[in-house]
Simulated assay, not measured.
Amino acid sequence: MNNFLNPLIETISQAIKKQQFGQEPKELYEPISYIMSLGGKRLRPVLTLLGYRLFQEDIRPAIKPAMAVETFHNFTLVHDDIMDKAPLRRGQATVHTKWNDNIAILSGDVMMIKVYDLLLDVAPELLPSVIRAFNNNATEVCEGQQKDMNFETRNDVSTDEYIDMIRQKTAVLLGLALQLGAMIAKAPEKTQQDLYQFAVDLGIGFQLKDDLLDVYGDQAKFGKQIGGDIIENKKTFLLINAVALATGSTKATLQQWIEATDFDATEKVQAVTQIYDQLGIKALTEQKMNDYFDQAFAILKQMDIGDQQKEWLSGFAQMVINREK
């Protein structure tokens, strides 16, 4: 699988290095080059290249659309970090920390504009449907972010609401990324929709895995503080289910930690993790995560594409499922 993916990863990495978003004023453009150079998993642009490669050998027509997907993703990170007051992104200072909020907002705005520049090379007959699909998904990402912020002040978030939020905030962009490559390759409409749903289900499982790794991951591999979600009382699948299942003294202890304003972070993470262990929250989350991975593979199995193409998609999925960071 890696032998197949590596050229796609290298292609998008080189495209990002070569991309010139602008020069002056440098305060506007340097933050864009900075956030785009911080790396990350590049899952989304690789999915776009992969979606195209399923049907066409020469991936060059998919490079700019893949760049558009990655630019949009990074734009959302720049603005999300401002909203979250996050100091770090991928182990480095966030744009608003390294510069300031106003610069981060404006640089993000330019990134969003540049997304459309990158999409303009799509074949004219495909451009309206490509723009429409992108706009629909970009809107859903914003809706998901707003729901996530709304959850901060709510104590009655259900698991269904949480799943719908991560579907919009995280999963639909993975779906668009894969579908976009297939659209540009002029794949059949039914296959495009199957690819979209495959990647959305994979994306929901991906986020649930991220929730798990935040609590149970290896910090050296995960690349960020273990227990960050616990410290912030973030409404994850784990916390929502713990609140719903806890009773008696366990419920009282959990509520004390949620309401505490002055606490030792390490102690809180250990205490809440212990409650998760008592309630079987890890196994419950793994089951939900695997349900979505299974749904993705069920879609893949019946998809009207060749065995080689199914193997490529299966390999990508396994990379997501087995990740430790």
Rank of each mutant, 00 (worst) to 15 (best):
E311K: 10
L212M: 09
Q20D: 12
I321D: 02
G315Q: 05
G248Y: 06
I230L: 02
A199V: 10
P61T: 12
L43M: 12
D117P: 04
T48G: 02
D101Q: 15
N155D: 15
L106T: 05
L43W: 09
T191E: 07
D101W: 08
L245V: 04
L119R: 09
G228D: 09
E70L: 09
L239R: 00
L254H: 00
I275N: 03
V320P: 11
Q145T: 08
T139Y: 09
F21C: 08
Q23E: 14
M112F: 14
F72V: 02
N136S: 15
I231W: 05
Q23P: 04
I299L: 13
A298K: 10
L300A: 08
R132D: 14
I184V: 14
R89P: 00
I12F: 09
N241C: 12
T153D: 04
Y34M: 05
E161A: 06
D218C: 08
R154M: 13
W312D: 11
V115C: 15
V141E: 05
D229W: 03
K64R: 15
S249L: 11
R154P: 05
L254E: 01
M36T: 04
N3P: 00
A246Q: 07
M319Q: 10
K26I: 07
L195Y: 04
L119Q: 08
R60C: 12
G39T: 02
Q308A: 12
M1N: 10
R44T: 07
G228F: 01
P87T: 02
A260N: 06
A283K: 08
F316L: 08
A246R: 07
D109H: 02
I32Q: 00
A199I: 09
V172N: 05
E286F: 02
Y34H: 04
G91W: 05
T250G: 04
V269G: 10
V46W: 00
